[in-house]
């Protein structure tokens, strides 16, 4: 069954025909070519597919495509503006918080949602916000340091 949905991704409006049983992740990656959200566990454990939906981090592998009708979606592609990296992206580079990079887009989006809601979180709040994002290079310390760095700025 096909559904015509209208939604916004990184500020651009899209009208797409989607199948009932496809996920938001599939539409982003396969129909729109937005590939920063990754297909990981498909079970809500790993967070590699994390995008912001109406400002909140969600697992895009567990959102049905027709459910995204009317939604405002943000992905890592939308973080930099006019060629200037988002402070979180720059901090991830400065702190060497990226190893293989598979978890990075999800980490960035979960961190952005946290800072949007709580501009100066504690380390515990950062760790709590990132529970749903797994890094198998075991780079959590540097990731948390990068988010702390941005959180401690004005």
């Amino acid at each position: 069954m096909l559904h015509d949905i209208t939604f916004t991704v990184n500020g651009d409006r899209y009208v797409v025909a989607v199948r009932s049983h496809h996920t938001l992740l599939q539409v982003l990656r396969e129909d729109l070519g937005i590939t920063s959200p990754k297909r990981g566990c498909e079970n809500g454990e790993c967070g590699a597919c994390t995008v912001l939906m109406d400002g909140l981090p969600v697992n895009s592998c567990m959102v049905l495509a027709p459910e995204a009708d009317g939604a405002v979606i943000e992905t890592a592609e939308g973080l930099s503006k006019d060629g200037i990296l988002h402070p979180l992206q720059q901090a991830f580079i400065d702190h060497n918080a990226v190893q293989c990079g598979f978890c990075t887009p999800g980490m960035l989006m979960s961190s952005k949602a946290l800072l949007d809601r709580t501009p100066h979180p504690s380390e515990d709040e950062i760790r709590y916000a990132l529970v749903g994002n797994l890094c198998r290079c075991t780079g959590y310390v540097r990731i948390v340091e990068a988010v702390m760095d941005v959180a401690e700025r004005e």
Binding site: G44, G47, P57, L130, G132
Partner: peptide
Amino acid sequence: IGNEQIRNR
């Protein structure tokens, strides 16, 4: 319950 992404859905 779960994690941030799960709790948002």
